[in-house]
Each structure stands twice: as C-alpha cells, then as structure tokens.
Amino acid sequence: MSSSTDSPTLTTETTQLSPQPDTETAKPTKKITLKSSDNQIFEVEESVAMEFATVKSFFEDSPSTDTVPLPNVTAKPLSQVIEFCKEQIKFKANPDEAQKKKYNAEFVTEKSDKDLVDMIPVANYLEIKDLLDVLNQAVADRIENKSVEYVRSFFGIDNDFTAEEEAALRREHAWAYEGVDED
C-alpha cells in the first residue's frame, strides 16, 4: 500500500498561483510563466503550457522567453483553462476515454453560464481545440430550444432590431420552428 509520501509523478499539484517545488519527483519539470491581462502570474508545467497552441508557437518563435504575456486573457478563465489542460495531460499519459468523457462532462456541468461563455474566447485564443469543442457543446446544450429572449440574456446581448426587422426575422425563420411545441 502506498503512503502519501511516495506520491507518483502523475499527480500534478492543483495549485495554480503558488505551486510548490515538486521535490518528490525524479526529474524536475520545466515551468513556464503566463501573465494574464490583469497582471496575475501563473506558473504551469511546460507540458501543460504546450497544450496551448498559441503559447507553443510563441516559444517556437522565441525560445529564450520565460514569461508569456497574455494580454487578452483574464485570470479567472485562464485558471479554469489551466485546470482543464492539467487533466488532459493525465489522460494523454493514461488514455481512458470513459474517464475523460466523464471529466469533461463534469468540468462544464459545474461551471456557471458566465464561466463557460468567458472561457470560449480564451480557449479560442489559446487554440485548445478539445476544450473549445467541450465548451461550444456545453453552451449549445444550455441554449437548446430556448427562446430568443433567453439566448440574449445568456450572452448579455442587447436587442438592436426594430419591430419591423423582428417581424421579418420571424417570417424568415418560421421554417426552422415548424412543428415546435410552444412551452
């Protein structure tokens, strides 16, 4: 039976803002520093950072850099995105489709609408295809069969149509709603 002291290399720490040096592991992993637009510093393992295609190509272009500024990304969605990618690394090492699906499903279920919506542009910017897929699907599920009003408030959009335009839209889209029961 293994005790907590001989923890295997695979269990990466979950702290994002102040990671402790991983003295137990055999080979020290390189850390990469990411800086969000609100000047928060994130130290992540290189393998995690390489999940972000944007960061990866940044490093390919300028290998000597040690801090990657992410001027379009704020801390909160970034920390959630990092959390997701850390898990994906584990699945890469130990492929388990069922577990991965389960994790991905839970990851989005526990997030608020705003969290999801905020993460999409970050995932898009950092080019994390898997996450983008999971997020888009989650948002699609949440607005499925919802009214236009609901969708507007979901994304925080203001209605900028005139009454005439709205009437025209209803006619134009009538076919798509054919057979839908109003509820």
């Binding site: 607005i143 499925e144 009214s147 969708v151 994304f155 959009i157 900028d160 889209h173 798509a176």
Partner: peptide, 9 residues
C-alpha cells in the same frame, strides 16, 4: 437554435 441566436441582434 441557429434561428434563435440569429434573432438576438
């Protein structure tokens, strides 16, 4: 749902 999203703005 595309129709609904298109009708937002």
């Amino acid at each position: 749902d595309r129709a609904s999203l298109s009708a937002t703005c």
